[in-house]
């Protein structure tokens, strides 16, 4: 059936069955591929998007549940002040290796810094625990979250 999706500030009409994960609507129907498929069971965080500003795993968020929500993805996160700072920090510290998980890492980091402008190491570890990186870039992710916090403070 037809759904109307508010994503990155625009409204998009999509055809999908109820029960279709938002992830696959974004990737296969809207062809916005910055949001990644990693596990399909909300265990790796590669598919993280924002729903009304809160990070969610889009592989376990269903199309029928997001009709009235604002969805935002990595493609638009630079428009957010926190998002721009996080991306700047990520590039400055060269966090990415293979890079496949980093959209999700960034979406989570933006969620963290939006609610906690100056997180401690423990708070970063707790918040980012669900975002897996098989290249193990975690040390730089921690440093980049702190660097983004500094950028925002300046």
């Amino acid at each position: 059936m037809a759904y109307s999706l508010k994503i990155n500030g625009a409204t998009q009409e999509v055809e999908a069955e109820a029960g279709t994960p938002l992830l696959w609507v974004i990737r296969d129907e809207l062809k916005m591929t910055g949001t990644k498929f990693g596990c399909g069971v909300a265990s790796c965080g590669a598919c993280t998007v924002h729903l009304n500003g809160e990070p969610v795993r889009s592989c376990q968020t269903f199309i029928e549940d997001v009709e009235d929500a604002e969805v935002s993805t990595i493609e638009a996160i630079a428009e957010d002040k926190v998002g721009a700072a996080v991306q700047q920090a990520w590039v400055e510290l060269d966090v990415a290796q293979c890079g496949y998980c980093q959209s999700g890492q960034i979406m989570s980091a933006v969620g963290l810094l939006s609610e906690n402008a100056k997180p401690t190491i423990e708070e970063i570890n707790d918040y980012m625990q669900g975002n897996a990186c098989r290249c193990a870039t975690y040390q730089r992710i921690r440093a980049a979250v702190q660097r983004a916090s500094e950028i925002l403070e300046a």
Binding site: G34, Q87, W90, V91, E92, V95, Q102
Partner: peptide, 20 residues
């Protein structure tokens, strides 16, 4: 800095999974 760093930070990097 890495040549692929920015693209892997803004969602524009294309993996085979991302080709349509």
């Amino acid at each position: 800095r890495r040549k692929d760093g920015a693209a892997k930070t803004n969602g524009s990097a294309k993996f085979a999974m991302d080709l349509h």
